[in-house]
Design a protein around this nucleic acid. Structure first.
Lengths: 257, 257
DNA sequence: ATACACTTTTACGTAACGTCAATGTCAAAT
DNA sequence: ATTTGACATTGACGTTACGTAAAAGTGTAT
């Protein structure tokens, strides 16, 4: 029985592209090519393909499979044993990654938990907390660069308040931005407030602030469609609106255009 | 303090290519570019790079990192949690692969072990074995296609004898080939014997035999440098010599050229 | 003036295909 | 006889995170 690429692909459960690719890399050649240039496969090619797919399921690379099938000197047991070792090594790497992600998550949540504890540790603690809160707000009102960068040295060790404030800032930006959008004016008070909120939000993750970077980031929100999508999902045109607001906020609106 | 790519790369322990790549994809831009077009980085870029590398070590993709760093709406905890899930999923896949490789190895070794056992199970068993052995040799002498393909249906269930024969055939091919090589004549008896051995070797892993495939494979040994290297490592020119021998053996030497 | 270390951009290579695009072929229906 | 729809072909680009040249300019020391 003879088969075309399509028939073979259905038989073996792989795409036609895969079959053509296997021809291209010389791992599975058609038995012949007909007068129209079609690839024609026979029984032995089907059997070979089965073998290829078998080793492929074991995660063996196609070039290794090629050797396994065509190289007289190839020691399959040894190859599989080494392949196994590589797989185990990769799994070890993954375990390490997972444990590191866990550590990160725990340390983030740990920070929150600790501050939660403090909440129930009496008034003194609460006062301290509130002081810090006020102090934090002051910082943000002044935006002295040194203070901000100091506070940001603890990005990964954010307190619950900081964390909450940080995430709620994200929502607040969107909300303010949408309200400002209806005015259509990126220079309006609301739009400028949104730009300011955005700057505050940045302060949580950026080591330091400068206008150029802020304006550049705003431009990226427009240039990079992933970010554009995010804002425009809320409201088409929002990304551009935010950029314009930030350009005005940073005073970079005339200099660059 | 300001740094060039080279200085920054040494500071952070990454290649200069990486730094230029991060600029290219917009994840880490230089603070400025000097009059000669050199990238100049400042303190905040160093801090940003640290963050990037931190998340990179967790196995987070650069595009995700970009979002983590630049997207106000990005929920890092959620992202990390999902990232963790993906990692665990990959580990599960790996576990499956490893267990499948194990099964394959066990089934291969199991076949050998079983036949080892049989060796010590009395004369009757031995006779059966030897019968099979003879039968197998007969097959190979005749090379009737059906018989060969029948025997090859058990490729993965090879007996110890078959397996041993198969691997020793590989060595025998090389040996014969090297002996034949000194005669310089691919039509010589020795060279033709090597071609025949090679055909026999093929019978162990190929579902069926035909001259065209055999000749095609021989050509591939010359075209594909991985195989060329293997043979030429033993003796420069050996791959071509084997091809010529096989072309003569299969009678494809005049037809195709 | 030259050597040497450094920089730039451009561009190909990696693994295993997915996904167009432009074009040709086959069998069946009109 | 022609049209349609399903199939085939060969390109060629995209994917990830860079490695690795190549060709050409820059900075500094001798």
């Amino acid at each position: 029985m003879e088969y075309t690429v399509n028939e073979l692909s259905k038989l073996a459960g792989v795409s036609t592209r895969t079959i053509r690719y296997y021809d291209e890399i010389g791992i599975l050649k058609p038995s012949r090519i007909n007068s129209s240039g079609y690839r024609i496969y026979g029984q032995k090619e089907i059997d070979l393909l089965q073998q290829i797919l078998f080793y492929r399921e074991l995660g063996v690379s196609l070039s290794k499979i090629k050797e396994i099938i065509y190289d007289p000197s190839f020691d399959i047991d040894m190859a599989l044993t080494e392949h196994r070792k590589a797989l185990v090594e990769r799994r070890k790497q993954l375990d390490l990654l997972i444990s590191n992600v866990d550590k990160t998550l725990v340390s983030r949540k740990g920070g929150i938990k600790m501050s939660n504890k403090e909440k129930f540790q009496g008034f003194k603690q609460k006062l301290v907390e509130e002081n810090e809160k006020k102090y934090g707000q002051e910082i943000r009102e002044k935006y002295g660069e040194d203070e901000v960068s100091k506070s940001n040295e603890k990005i990964l060790g954010m307190t619950e308040e900081e964390y909450t404030r940080w995430t709620s800032l994200g929502a607040e930006i969107i909300k303010t931005l949408k309200e400002a959008f209806v005015t259509g004016d990126p220079a309006s008070d609301l739009a400028q407030k949104a730009a300011d909120l955005h700057k505050q939000w940045l302060a949580f993750t950026w080591p330091s602030y400068n206008k150029e970077a802020h304006a550049g980031l705003a431009q990226m929100y427009v240039d990079d469609e992933r970010f554009t999508k995010y804002y425009d999902k809320e409201q088409p045109g929002l990304a551009k609106f935010l950029r314009d607001a930030i350009l005005i906020y940073t005073g970079m609106d005339k200099n660059n255009n």
